[in-house]
Each structure stands twice: as C-alpha cells, then as structure tokens.
Simulated scan of single mutants.
Amino acid sequence: MKSLQDALYNWLTIKIVTDERPSDTAASETEKMFEAMLIDEHRLSNIEIEKDEIMYYVHFDQNGERKKSRFPRELIEVMLNQINLEPEKYVNYPED
C-alpha cells in the first residue's frame, strides 16, 4: 500500500474491531497484516492511539520524527458499527 494515510486508516479501522472482538480471528489476522505494512513499508514505530469525542489520533515515529494523523470517529467506527448492528453476518469461525 503506497499511501501512509491509507495504511493508517485501514489499520486503525480493523484495530478498533479487534479491540472490541479479540477472539475474531479474521480481524486479528487482518490487523497484523496492516500493522506489518506500517512497520515494514512505512517504517513506523511507537504507534499510539488516542481519541476524543470527534476524532482518532494516531501518533507514531517515522524517520526519527514524531508525527500524528487524525481520522473522524464516524469513518473509523463504521465497520465496528456494522458488525454490532448485524452480528449474524460476522460470525467468527474457529480455526481448525
């Protein structure tokens, strides 16, 4: 994924799901994939999340510099909200 902003958005969206549903294996695997992209492709470290009533803020180090991106909560939480509205569509299938 070329864009750091896209990679952060995708990672944060699925991270919110895995935080709420820690036993969701598909979400967990997807989060690990996006986190690896952030670390390996974009060279991020010390990634931290904070939120307020309107935004999520992702703080990170890149190339020796502390940086921050922000995302509206309504965009980040859309997947989690969809799962919570229709949980029967998002069944967690255990690994064999």
Rank of each mutant, 00 (worst) to 15 (best):
E77W: 00
M55F: 14
D40C: 05
S3A: 14
E41C: 06
I47S: 00
K67Y: 00
R70Y: 07
E48N: 06
L44K: 00
S3C: 09
H42I: 10
Q82R: 15
I49N: 05
R70W: 07
H42D: 12
I76H: 01
A36C: 07
P72A: 12
K89S: 12
Y9M: 15
M33Q: 15
Y90D: 01
R70P: 00
S23G: 10
T18N: 01
A7S: 15
K32N: 10
R73E: 03
D24F: 15
E41I: 07
A26M: 10
I76K: 01
D19C: 09
E65T: 14
K89A: 13
E48M: 03
M55K: 04
A27V: 04
D19S: 11
H59I: 04
K68T: 15
V91H: 06
K68S: 13
H59M: 05
E31Q: 13
K2Y: 13
Y90P: 01
I76R: 01
N46Y: 07
H59C: 02
K51L: 04
K89R: 14
V78N: 09
V78P: 00
S69C: 13
E86V: 14
I39K: 06
L80G: 06
E88I: 08
L75P: 04
K2I: 13
E88V: 08
N63T: 11
T18E: 08
W11T: 06
K68I: 14
D6A: 12
Y90F: 13
L75E: 14
T30I: 10
E48F: 04
E41T: 10
D19G: 11
Y93P: 06
V78S: 15
N46I: 03
I14G: 08
H59D: 13
P22C: 09
K89V: 06
N10L: 14
G64Q: 03
E86K: 12
P87V: 05
H59W: 09
D61R: 02
E95A: 11
S28H: 05
N84R: 10
P87K: 09
Y90K: 01
S45Q: 02
L44W: 00
N46G: 07
R43C: 08
V17R: 02
E65P: 03
K2N: 13
K2A: 14
